[in-house]
Computed example of a mutant assay.
Amino acid sequence: MKFLQVLTFYPAYSEALYARHPALAHLPYEKQLNVILRDGFGALHYFGLPMRDLGWDSRIVLANVPQLQAAWMAQNNPARLAAGASIIDVLRLQIESFAPDVLFISDSVAFQSQFVRTLAVRPRIVSGWRAANIPPDTDWQEFDLILSHLSGCRKKALEHGAREAEFFYPGFPGFVHDAVKDQTADLDLIFCGQWTPEHAARNRMLFRAAMQARSKGWKLEYHLHVNGSGKMSSALESVMHSAKWGLDMFRTLRRGRISFNAEIDLAGGEAGNMRLFETTGVGAFLMTQHHANISRYFEPDREIVTFGSEEEFLEKAAYYIEHDAEREAIAERGMRRCQTEHSLESRAAELDAILRKRL
């Protein structure tokens, strides 16, 4: 059976990658794709790779990387490329030429039912992932299945027309740890992520932590991708640094004695975002918001440390900055749990089971 995963990347990341490696755009399609995937951006969602070991003829398509898609067209349909094919046209041709049994769209808001209806042959299963805001006009009537770790997203998926919605979450790929394991900690606190209006509670925590770091003399860095509509306090300018992507982001997580995390506001009191696994997977010490379901993933105070308020976060941060042995032991246990129970391979096995019972 055939499995095709459609991924999209932040344009800022792909633009930076190609600017850093000018020769990349001139490589054949498969070589470009391999270079990009090995850089690890969004690697917790690379299900198309381990699905091959589960008996699937599996491929990954990066739908919105122009240089890569142009290389595919040059090798597979040069006449259409010369005529000015759009990104949507290229993706449609890729899907139709592969004819997958399962189409898994990781950005199910960018590619909704309107796109699926344009395919010459509909795959047996059209599935998607969503764990973020769902616009009110989203149409998932052509989707057989939407996966999410957030119950609110699963409920909305059904309201927007999906036939089914099921619990699922990403997994940590072992190659990432191997690539960054030599990075040592030289900062007290680190945060890598986004600053958006949808993360209001986290934004407040970032501000409080920066003020505490200033008064305590902690070494702190924020590597933020700032949404254009997000308003940031000028008080954070001294700790603001450029966003980190791919393996650079994973290395940066290891630079912090403490890497902290808070969920998007719409999570509604549920844990399970990618940073839980990104941080623990590379062996960094994680402090994250306490939610009722956190023990589904990690054991608090043994594999990670949780906090219920900004004040508790600051108190525990001060403690663990000073207690290296305890902090490192917790990080080690968290890493072992992540790399076994939450590995990309184990999550792909779960995805395989979810799909096969519907075929």
Rank of each mutant, 00 (worst) to 15 (best):
H177A: 07
Q141C: 13
Q212G: 04
D182Y: 01
W129G: 07
H199S: 15
N203Q: 02
M205K: 09
N133Q: 14
K216F: 01
A185W: 00
G193Y: 03
G128Y: 00
F207A: 07
D139Y: 01
R214C: 05
M211C: 11
G128K: 07
R163K: 15
S127W: 00
C192W: 01
L150P: 04
H160E: 07
Q194L: 15
G193N: 00
R154M: 09
H149G: 08
H177G: 10
P170G: 00
A213V: 09
R202K: 05
G128R: 03
V180G: 12
R202S: 02
P170L: 04
H223L: 06
L145D: 02
P170H: 00
D188I: 07
R163Q: 14
E198D: 15
N203S: 04
A185V: 11
Q194A: 15
W218E: 04
Y169C: 01
I146W: 00
K216P: 06
G128T: 03
E166M: 03
P170R: 10
R163P: 11
I190S: 09
D182C: 13
A213H: 00
I190A: 15
C192S: 12
E142P: 05
E142A: 14
R130L: 12
Q194N: 11
L224M: 08
F207Q: 06
V180W: 00
Q212P: 04
G161T: 03
L206Y: 00
A157Q: 13
A131Q: 06
W140H: 06
L206W: 04
A162V: 03
G171P: 10
E159K: 12
E221P: 08
A200W: 04
F167S: 13
P173Q: 02
E166K: 02
R202H: 03
A213M: 03
G128L: 02
R163I: 13
Q141A: 14
L189E: 10
F191H: 08
A131S: 09
A210R: 06
A165H: 05
A165D: 09
H223K: 10
A132K: 14
A185T: 11
G171E: 01
F175K: 02
K156I: 05
M205C: 10
L145P: 10
F191K: 10
E142W: 11
F175I: 00
A185E: 01
S215Q: 08
S151L: 14
G152Q: 05
Q194E: 15
A201T: 15
F168C: 09
W218P: 13
I134Y: 05
S215A: 07
P135A: 09
H199R: 13
K219F: 05
S215H: 08
A132T: 15
H177E: 04
L189F: 02
D139S: 14
G152K: 14
G171C: 02
E221R: 07
R202F: 01
R208S: 13
K219E: 09
C192T: 03
P173R: 01
M205E: 06
